[in-house]
């Protein structure tokens, strides 16, 4: 392919090939402090390409593919090329990650111990993780938490933090010196802007943490919390995992161990700042 970008995010190496310079230039800028894949050999390949040769220049639209793909991955306009690259990398993880139990969860660490926050899209897990980072926690990831079946430890996957809609302004306010990607209005998922994880998150991304608290946040209600039984936690986390079944008995071992050893809480919250306070209070009580 014409343009190529290689990066390692946590334990996972990627190679992104693109028919256009634009998306690769943006990736180079935003991921400039990240390492390259180990041994120069990426775990996954992502391809951004034009559906027809002339569509590289005429109404350019980016098709997303790679080692693993789904038949109906809709193309994006070239102005959203960075988003296409991120979606392509997420797709490889969701379809083919087999080394770690992949939980659709954000994660933050303090004193070697991690809080995992999972929930449906819109539950605010990216925003929560970013706000915790702004308050001095180490960000481990805003989208995927990787559980090592051998050790039970959480491995970081600190990709660019994907902020949507109101969360963009919240984080621009919370981190006036933060490094942000280009604003991308009107994407299929609303207005998006990426935030680069801080230097510490990148420098320490190879250091795993032991899971200490599992949270199931729900946005849009008065502040409340309740304990979550291991069985409920187990079922909800299998639903939040894209590879639980594919990991077979290793996945079962990892997840039963996680839910029987780590306390879990569901929290309702009216706004992000309240949620952060709730998380920190729960952390003091349980972790």
């Amino acid at each position: 392919m014409r343009h190529r970008f290689d990066v390692r995010i946590g334990p996972v190496g990627f190679r992104v090939g693109s028919d256009w310079r634009g998306p690769v230039a943006q990736l180079e800028t935003l991921y400039r402090d990240y390492p390259r894949p180990e041994d120069g050999i990426p775990d996954f390949t992502v391809r951004l390409f034009a559906a027809r040769p002339w569509r590289r220049v005429v109404r350019p639209s980016v098709m997303i593919s790679g080692d693993y793909t789904i038949p109906d991955a809709a193309p994006l306009p070239l102005r959203l090329g960075l988003l296409a690259a991120e979606m392509g990398m997420n797709l490889q993880m969701a379809l083919a990650q087999r080394r770690y139990l992949l939980l659709h969860a954000s994660a933050a660490e303090r004193d070697g111990r991690a809080v995992l926050m999972t929930g449906v899209s819109g539950a605010g897990k990216s925003t929560l993780a970013a706000l915790l980072m702004a308050r001095g926690w180490r960000l481990m990831g805003d989208e995927f938490a990787l559980i090592d079946p051998e050790t039970g430890l959480v491995h970081a996957f600190p990709r660019l933090i994907s902020l949507k809609n109101q969360a963009v302004a919240v984080m621009e306010h919370a981190l006036p010196d933060g490094r942000f990607g280009p604003p991308m209005p009107d994407t299929p998922k609303g207005d998006i802007r990426h935030l680069v994880p801080d230097a510490r998150a990148v420098e320490t991304m190879d250091r795993p943490a032991s899971p200490a608290l599992i949270l199931f946040p729900t946005f849009g209600h008065e502040a409340a919390e309740r304990p979550v039984l291991p069985s409920e936690s187990f079922v909800r986390l299998t639903q939040a995992s894209t590879n639980y079944l594919a990991l077979a008995e290793r996945g079962y071992d990892a997840l039963t161990r996680l839910v029987t050893t780590v306390p879990a809480r569901a929290i309702d919250y009216p706004d992000a700042q309240t949620a952060v306070a709730q998380v920190e209070t729960l952390w003091e009580q349980t972790a």
């Binding site: 039984l229 069985s231 079922v235 639980y244 079944l245 008995e249 079962y252 039963t256």
Partner: peptide, 22 residues
């Protein structure tokens, strides 16, 4: 079969199918 007691529920792993049943 493998069984891990979670609380009142048990997580059963069935090796032949690779499926888990709570």
């Amino acid at each position: 079969l493998r069984a891990v007691t979670l609380d009142a529920m048990v997580a059963l792993y069935h090796r032949a199918s690779g499926q888990t049943h709570v």
